[in-house]
Amino acid sequence: MWVLVFFDLPTDTKKERRIASKFRKKLLNDGFSMFQFSIYMRFCASRENAQVHTKRVKASLPEKGHVGILNITDKQFGMMELYFGTQKTETEKPSQQLELF
């Protein structure tokens, strides 16, 4: 599963910029990586793990602004077409995770 977080937060005042920066840093600390300027993504090994990270994002939502959270499967993510200018690029591959039982 992939969790994508889309956000558009106000940055008119110094306080608003600080709040937006804090939200972004929380996403990074939770293992999200920047896909585009206001779109962050994280690979999760299972639906349950995706729900955990979705709850963390919800817990750190700022008072103002718009935030969207989207969960998609690895197959759906792999069907995305990405371009850098006119050059087609590959989608990010999920990281390999070691499971111990």
Rank of each mutant, 00 (worst) to 15 (best):
M1V: 12
L4N: 04
L4K: 03
V5G: 02
F7R: 06
D8S: 15
L9T: 02
T11E: 07
T13H: 01
E16H: 00
R17C: 03
R17S: 00
R18I: 01
I19L: 13
A20V: 01
R24N: 05
R24P: 00
R24L: 09
K26D: 05
K26S: 10
L27Y: 11
L27H: 08
D30T: 04
Q36W: 06
F37E: 08
I39G: 00
Y40Q: 01
Y40N: 04
F43I: 01
F43R: 10
C44Q: 04
A45P: 08
R47T: 13
E48T: 09
N49I: 15
Q51H: 05
V52M: 07
H53W: 11
H53Y: 15
T54S: 11
T54A: 14
T54V: 12
K55W: 06
R56C: 07
P62L: 00
E63W: 09
G65W: 04
G65R: 06
H66K: 14
G68V: 05
I69L: 05
L70M: 14
N71P: 08
I72C: 15
Q76S: 15
Q76V: 13
F77R: 05
T86V: 06
T86A: 12
Q87E: 14
K88E: 12
T89W: 14
E92N: 01
K93R: 12
P94D: 05
P94W: 07
S95L: 10
Q96R: 14
Q96V: 14
Q97K: 10
Q97I: 14
E99C: 09
F101G: 00
